[in-house]
Every structure is written in structure tokens, then in C-alpha cells.
Amino acid sequence: MSTPIRRSSLLLLIIFTAAASASAQSKKPAAKTSAAGPHGAPPQIQVSVDTLMDRRTTRDFPRSELSISFKLEGADANAVQSARARVTKADDDTGKSLLVAAADSKQGSESWQEAHEGGAPTPKVDLASPSRKAKTLATVEGVLEAYMPSRDPASTIQVEKITAKKDKPPIASPALAAHHIRLQVLSKAALEKERADAKAKAQAAQKKSKKGAQDGLEQMGEAMADALTSMLERIFLTAGENDLILKVNDPDKKIFSLGLAAPDGSAIHSYGTMDLDSYRVVRMFEPIPPNASLLVRLKTAKSFGQVPFSLVNLKLP
């Protein structure tokens, strides 16, 4: 096999890993499905297991764990923009509880999983590793939390032609203002200017403190200026030419996520968002089309739904 072909098969393997979805468990529907939430009709979503991975190791770190990726199906599954699962009970057939104490749970294990191009998100939970002697998971119970902005038109604010707003004053939008949100689109050059300004301020503060005795307030100001400079430097170094750089002021933490859409409403996919203090970088492989809109997704009560699930007798790999 030639080298290029071998490389391409590696790529396909990566793709297949991401697309892996054919476990025996995935065919089993959830015993319980969606239940009525506090706001509106309950989402029609069935939760089943997509993939089980029991990683057993003699190492202390990272330690052994069982990861379960859930599959979302049903009439509302494709409306789920983000999801996360919370497991309240998980036992193997030897009676061992697999719940991990909050203090021991892995950082980010509670994070929201975004929908991907192919469909609904596949939220993942990490549990303790079952006994080697166990053959099945006797019970896995919990709640799926789903963010479905399409259930509440008020949860999405659309800012048209977002690239035209680059290096302009903060976006003038009554809808954003109503939520006390201020957004400004920056170019890499503007970010570099902010970095240079912050650096100059830090240096001036240092000079000033050298002249006289430093009091606590000055020291704190200097440290903050240093931190800001290094943070801006990190953003500058990691932001790509195609990325959308936003300076965000959201004192009430109303923003759930940011996305991009074409004029026909179809999603323009990014490969993630980086949050650093008041800056957010939407990562893009390709330049953003000039007619693209920014979709500011807000946390509203109607846009969230909960689905309890209870799965039994899941065969362990």
C-alpha cells in the first residue's frame, strides 16, 4: 500500500472513531423516556447507549474509568443543540456502585456536548470502572439535560453580517442590550493593539512602583495588568486568521453559546470556541462568509428540557 493511501486510511480511522455508533446497546430503547419538564411539553427524546468504554489500568493517573456515550433519538433529538447527562445511579451486576464522588470527578465531565453536523449530540459520562468479574451494568439511571433553542424564539439573537462589524464600536442591538450584553468584534490587529496597550500599562505601572514604595493596591494593579497582557498574548498566539474574535461583556452570564449561520439559516460549523476571560474565539477552518450571521444563544427557561432515563442490563465489553 502506498504511503498516501496509508495516511488516508489513518484519517478514515479517525473519522470512524468519531462516527462509531454500532454497539449492541445502542439498539435498546430507554426504559423510561422524556418526562414533563417545568416549561412546556416534555421533549420527545429517547436515551440509549451509543458506546461503552471500560478503560482499566494499573496506572494511578489517569485512573481506570468507564465512559458511556449516550445516543439521543426521537422526534426532538435533532432539535438538541447541546446536551449533558447526569447519572444518579449506576451499579454493575456484582452490586458495585460506579458513581464517582463529586470531588473525584474529572474536570469537564459535566460539560455540555454540542450537536455535530451528523446529528444530535452524544453526551458522555465518566464512571468508576466496574469489577472485572462483572458481565453487565445492572442499572444506569439519570437525567439528560438538553438545550433546544428552537423551542424558544427569544433564546436566539441574530446579528447579521457579523464580519462587517469587525473593529467597529460594540454592536448596537436592543435585544442584546435588554440582556445587558455587549459584544465587539475584533480583528487580530485590534487584539494586538489591545495587547500592546495592556503591556504599556503594565510597564508604566512597574516604573511607577519602582519610583516609590509600592502599596498593596498598586501591586494588585500591576499583577492584573500582567495577567491581562499574558492572556491577550495567549489569545493572539492561538487565534487563527479565519477565527471570529469577540470581546464579550455579559455580567448576568446569559450567553449559552455562540454560533454562525448562513443567510438561509443553515449552520456554519466551527471547530470549537475558546473562552478566555472576556474574550471568545470562535474557531473556523474557512474564512467566514461576509453575509454570515452571529447567533447569540441565550439561557432561557423554555430552551432547556430534561429527560430522565433508566437503562438496565447493559452488556459490558
Binding site: 454497539s23 446497546q25 458506546t51 468504554m53 478503560r55 482499566r56 489500568t57 494499573t58 452488556k315 465489553p317
Partner: peptide, 14 residues
């Protein structure tokens, strides 16, 4: 030194 047994429901992996 260390042993790791990675068991995946999709048998193509692990």
C-alpha cells in the same frame, strides 16, 4: 511497568 486493558463496545477499537 503498567498494564492497560481498554475495552470498547465497538470491537474495532480497544
Amino acid at each position: 511497568a503498567n498494564v492497560e486493558d481498554q475495552r470498547v463496545s465497538d470491537e474495532r477499537f480497544g
